[in-house]
């Protein structure tokens, strides 16, 4: 019981320590919101970061994202956050293991990669490198991922064509009235015959 209590207290202290001091009290920007929705939470088996935030791993990653998208870009702060997030002495103790790589490698990569004004794709690529591709909540627009994106549009287009063809085939064909008179070819043939007969009769 005491052990449980201490774990709960540890979670509380960590959450509050990590939250304090970050720029809060403002609404999240659309960019932050979008980022949270295109990266999966490294906990719980399913759901994006936007859908989970009461676990430490997700909270920390959100803070790194906020720092990466912040107007006051501070590389040292980001590196310190990365170290706190992915070091074994940090949140790993709480049972979360969000990253796939050793912390030193992650820090080295972060130092090399992050820069002010990172685009959405660059940030997503950064986290994909740290955690592997499973962190993406959407397939890439390349390789096998293309199939995921193109299939619904393909189905819709095929469906529209199919339904149009079905309707077309269902539509009653207008009744074509057969001409009582002879066709032009037949007519000229007939005229020739009449002329010939009239000639023969000397009329």
């Amino acid at each position: 019981m005491n052990n449980r209590k201490s774990i709960i207290s540890l979670i509380t202290v960590l959450m509050i320590t990590l939250f304090t001091g970050t720029a809060m009290g403002q609404f999240k920007t659309d960019r932050q919101k979008e980022l949270e929705s295109i990266l999966m939470a490294p906990c719980c088996g399913s759901g994006t970061m936007a859908e989970h935030d009461d676990n430490q791993a997700t909270l920390n990653m959100k803070m790194i994202m906020n720092a990466l998208t912040s107007d006051n870009f501070d590389k040292n702060e980001i590196l310190s956050l990365v170290e706190r997030t992915y070091s074994n002495s940090g949140i790993y103790r709480l049972g979360f293991s969000p990253a796939q790589k050793p912390v030193r490698e992650i820090i080295k990569y972060t130092e090399k990669t992050v820069h002010p004004g990172m685009t959405m794709d660059e940030i997503v690529d950064y986290f994909s490198w740290v955690h592997d591709g499973k962190i993406r909540s959407m397939p890439k627009h390349s390789g096998i991922g293309q199939l995921a994106w193109k299939m619904p549009a393909f189905l819709l287009i095929m469906g529209t064509i199919l339904i149009s063809l079905v309707i077309q085939s269902y539509i009653k064909k207008p009744i074509v009235m057969q001409s009582v008179g002879a066709s032009a070819a037949e007519k000229s043939e007939l005229e020739k015959r009449i002329e010939k007969e009239m000639k023969d009769l000397n009329i």
Binding site: S37, I38, M40, G133, I144, A148, M151, P152, L155
Partner: peptide
């Protein structure tokens, strides 16, 4: 079909490429 495709896509991608690609709400 679109919902079914998105739901089953991780299974499909794993079967084809051996790698499970997540498909979440943004997709």
């Amino acid at each position: 079909l679109a919902v079914l495709w998105g739901t089953m896509y991780p299974v499909f991608s794993e079967a084809v490429s051996g790698y499970k690609i997540t498909v979440g709400s943004p997709y």
